[in-house]
Design a protein around this nucleic acid. Sequence first.
DNA 1: TACTGATTATCAGCATACTGTCAATTAGCG
DNA 2: CGCTAATTGACAGTATGCTGATAATCAGTA
Lengths: 153, 153
Amino acid sequence: MSDHAVMPGHLARRFQQIAVAIFHAEVEAAGFDLTPVQYVALAVLRHHPGIDQATLAGLIAYDRTTIGGVIDRLVQKGLIVRAVSPRDRRAHVLHLAEAGLATLEGIQPAVEAAQREMVAGLDAAETVEFIRLFRKAIAAANERSRAPMKPAP
Amino acid sequence: MSDHAVMPGHLARRFQQIAVAIFHAEVEAAGFDLTPVQYVALAVLRHHPGIDQATLAGLIAYDRTTIGGVIDRLVQKGLIVRAVSPRDRRAHVLHLAEAGLATLEGIQPAVEAAQREMVAGLDAAETVEFIRLFRKAIAAANERSRAPMKPAP
DNA sequence: TACTGATTATCAGCATACTGTCAATTAGCG
DNA sequence: CGCTAATTGACAGTATGCTGATAATCAGTA
């Protein structure tokens, strides 16, 4: 474990680096301009319309500070709408804009192609196992990051 | 594959996020102030003294632009020494400073503990398989990022 | 040798991500 | 009801990482 080529931390960084590069390549080739983070935010917002920033952050394990900038850029692009919550004036509730829904649907094939390419070196059984181990390791260490995953309230 | 909870790209981001958090926690508890990226740069430099920035970047698959800032901060901390190459005046050759070697040796237990914690949710056999699949997927997609891994010349 | 192309490092700019801190607001308890 | 604690979103600051561009330098060739 003292060789970086075998360290989970190094492998995590490298795989993430490749995953982001593949995502960008596929999405750009499909004619869209969206980062991986922006995509996940849109996708989750589609299934949970009207949640506030903190809830969205919890669902995808983002830091509250980070999600602010991501949302700013999505609002800027006209893909989501942000409004002060009528129930809680601290909170900003979020909704997909029409352009956001159209973008999500248009981008879906590119996103799925990207996911396949990230594990192109693995066969079907290995891919299933890789994902299982990923989820198991993440679930066990969920509370170790400042931004743990939290289910919707 | 259309649920982000199963997408390799999302799992990669989340695992990387946890890995960095655990690394920081362990390293700080051991009394050091070093990021994961800075650690790997030091570790590789120890086994390849005198390489230039581009070679170091290639060995650990960093972007050349990114490594510049990392090296700046390591020089600033007095952990490495940077000098213009006598053979090639474009290149900057790098060496560990004494403080860099001391830091590397002192930090090693914390780094290895962090690696174990990242996969604390997996048993021994699963950990071996996880690392194998990580490496296989990465090797197959090495050229997909702007900064592919390159062996030393 | 002169020129072309490649390589090295750097720069500005953008987008995550984290730390710590803060004001505004809400919720819970006495 | 009034006070304290917790929550929400924001800010400044730091560190990766990427894109595209550039100056300096080197290498291979005409």
